[in-house]
Amino acid sequence: MVNVIEILPFFVEKSKKHNFFQKTKAIIEAKIKTALNYKSAFFMTLFLNIVYFFMFYFFGENDISIKIHGVSISYFQYAFVGLSLQMVVGTALASTEQNILQEIITGTWSSTFFFFNIIEYALGTSIAGIFLSSFSILVSYFIATVFLRVPFWFSLNFTIYIAILFLLIMLSYISISIFFSSISIWYKKNIGLTKMFYELTKAFTGITFPIILLKGYPVAWFFSRIMPLTYGLEGIYATLFSEDFVRSVLVNASILGGFTFIIGIFGVILVNLSLKKIRKEGSVSIY
């Protein structure tokens, strides 16, 4: 057993200043380790996602074909893109807000509040969540191509455009999550906005049917136009099936970028106002 004299020399070196990348990396690692300690929940979610894919595959076996940019494809080929993204989008949307709520309930919020600013926290928790939920996409893609023999065509050119759109989709939903977090921090409870937004995203962004079908329905059309994933999917479908995809990618990427910027800034301002409020109330650490 050591004594105090042996310990002290190792405390002489000073700590560095708080570093954005170090802190973001630390929370990514901590959240992944925490999630992996919920092994049964992780594998259950993965299993349910695969079941979901099978459901749509067999639905697609009803010989429904869809035309995208003049190209006829099977229903499952169409739905696969949206379904894959839907899971990861859900994670990006929920990560920041749900993690903050969890921290408030379990008591780690005051420590989180002490060490992080909202951008570091949002990026760290979202990247951890996206990384874990991306397993669903990879496993589903593997099953679809190897076992179900669904043909997909990807080339390196497509991958870069899809990667850019994917990144912008994630950032836009992270910015929405930051915005929703401000409300959760203010009221210290889950008021269901994330779930509502997620369900609207699943319904009206073109995941399970082309959104052109919503044109005769103004309310539904409006919802589809305010969801970032609509623009992300438009860009991805154009990349996969249209010859003139660059213009579509540029337009949709710009919309996603603008959305992220505006909602992100607004969200950060509101979070800081909420944090100011709880500091004034003295309610940073109450359970």
Binding site: E13, S15, A26, K33, F115
Partner: peptide
Amino acid sequence: DNLIFYSSLAGVP
């Protein structure tokens, strides 16, 4: 893991 996490946040190499 808790201690390593919080040490990183505090800037300790």
